[in-house]
Write a protein that binds this DNA or RNA. Structure first.
Lengths: 154, 154
DNA sequence: TGAAAGAGGACTGATCGAGTCGGAGTTTGT
DNA sequence: ACAAACTCCGACTCGATCAGTCCTCTTTCA
């Protein structure tokens, strides 16, 4: 599976939308929800979480809404996903600080954590800005792909 | 989240165990389950699936069990995970051939699919053999990490 | 022939994601 | 001042999926 939740998707979509409309002083959750066909209240929660983490600034009241607190280039996909879905662990045993102590023989965990770090590195290298500008994102991703392939001959 | 299922974990652990015991003609599911404290019947299903895919060979009857059908170096973590958890999609909308047609505006999907390919590349570069030999796996993973970091200055 | 192993379908319980509801607090336009 | 348009937040339901179990059948070998 290895997929991220819809909430994380929504969060990325919303940030992308905000990055595309830097002129707008403030965009409401409803605006974004209507644009993408997302359940408004669900998107609202996502945006609230992103606000709490500090990626967004909110304005209550009429004509209120959200705006990016930082430049789109400096916000990585990793930050967004981490804020919404929590810390990502590829191993199912590692749940926060509590590791699977029932299986001390689980030597598989360590190398997989390295893999986990690699994946986090990929996500860290993608910014919200990259989502807007398709060509650079595509070039960067395929570049990463080549680097990965080069490091090991399958 | 972005985590793989316990079944996939069990599968990797089992393959690692088999790679560590190449001398044994055949190892039963119960042996592996006892070693790691895994529910035997659950592990059995995982091994059956891996057999069906062709990663393992099975021998029924007394003193029966499983053995790797290929060298551990030629079996990637990606194959194992794919066999057990199915195709991995980082985007939650892309479910097999049926994409989310409700949201044609979902322009986030395309760049994320690139990310998906990068992650698949990382998993493809890790073999079962790497799980046994910790040092090379660690070196490789950190190597990938460096390459990723170099390609983009955060 | 019987014990030990794999193969596999059916089923249950638990967990978690997706989405909804309702209400409370805040700002702003008029 | 008032109401509209927002954000904010907790609780709740529903459904899917995962984890694990049970039972039966087949195969193999001593």
């Amino acid at each position: 599976m290895l997929r991220l939740t819809k909430k994380a998707d929504y969060g990325l979509m919303a940030l992308k939308y905000l990055a595309e409309h830097p002129d707008a002083a403030s965009v409401s959750a409803k605006d974004i929800a209507d644009t993408y066909g997302i359940p408004p209240q669900l998107l609202a929660k996502v945006l609230q979480r992103l606000t709490k983490v500090g990626l967004l600034r909110s304005h209550a009241g009429m004509n209120g809404g959200y705006e990016l607190s930082r430049a789109a280039r400096t916000i990585s996909a990793f930050e967004v996903i981490h804020a919404i879905d929590g810390p990502l662990f590829i191993t199912s045993c590692t749940k926060g600080s509590k590791s699977c102590e029932l299986e001390p023989n689980c030597t598989v965990k360590e190398p997989l954590e390295r893999v986990n770090e690699s994946i986090a590195g990929v996500l860290r290298s993608i910014s919200i800005y990259d989502l807007v500008d398709h060509e650079t994102a595509a070039a960067r991703a395929s570049g990463l792909q080549q680097l990965v392939s080069l490091s090991h001959a399958m």
